[in-house]
Amino acid sequence: MEDVAPKVSYRTKLMGSQNSTDPFQALEDFEVQEGNVKTEVINGIPSIIFFERVHKFVEMKMAKTMVIKLLGRKITFNAILNIITILWKTKSYFQLMDLENDYCLVQFNDKEDFKNVLTKGP
């Protein structure tokens, strides 16, 4: 039986979970400090500016992430997860997050898996 990555919604990933056994919850703690964010209102429009430390953290987290678009007919989240797990044959877990409009976000645990899927995978 093949390992299947756990189903995690974008909201769950974004908000986190204190009692999850999800291996992807083992991310290092990152706390936005007071000097890392500037908020202001420009012409009645709220603006949030993140400084270098936050940008570097996001860049590091997104380095092994890709957005995929489903083409053709609509299929369920679990079907997508099963299909790409079989097709990609990754060495370690990856996380699939369902976005809207037939897009998904895939975050890989292993950089080699990411490179292989990006350059060789369907």
Rank of each mutant, 00 (worst) to 15 (best):
K69P: 00
M60Q: 13
D22P: 00
F50K: 08
N43S: 12
I45D: 07
I45R: 11
Q95D: 11
N43C: 07
F77W: 09
V54T: 10
V54D: 06
Q18K: 13
G16E: 02
K64L: 11
V32C: 08
T76D: 12
D29R: 08
M62I: 03
L70I: 12
S17K: 10
A63S: 12
M15E: 07
K61Q: 11
L70D: 06
V58G: 08
E31S: 14
N101C: 13
D29T: 02
Q33F: 08
K69A: 00
Q95T: 06
T39Y: 12
L14T: 10
M60E: 12
G35S: 15
F50D: 07
I45H: 11
P46T: 02
I75P: 01
L81A: 09
G35D: 15
L99E: 06
I42C: 04
M97S: 11
Y93N: 11
R73I: 07
V41P: 10
E100A: 13
K61D: 02
N43I: 06
V54M: 08
L27K: 10
E34F: 05
P23D: 01
V54A: 08
I84D: 04
D29A: 03
Q95P: 04
K69Q: 02
F57A: 13
E100P: 11
K13Q: 11
W88H: 03
I86N: 11
E59I: 01
N101I: 04
N82Q: 15
T65S: 01
E34P: 07
N36C: 05
I68R: 01
E52D: 15
T21Y: 10
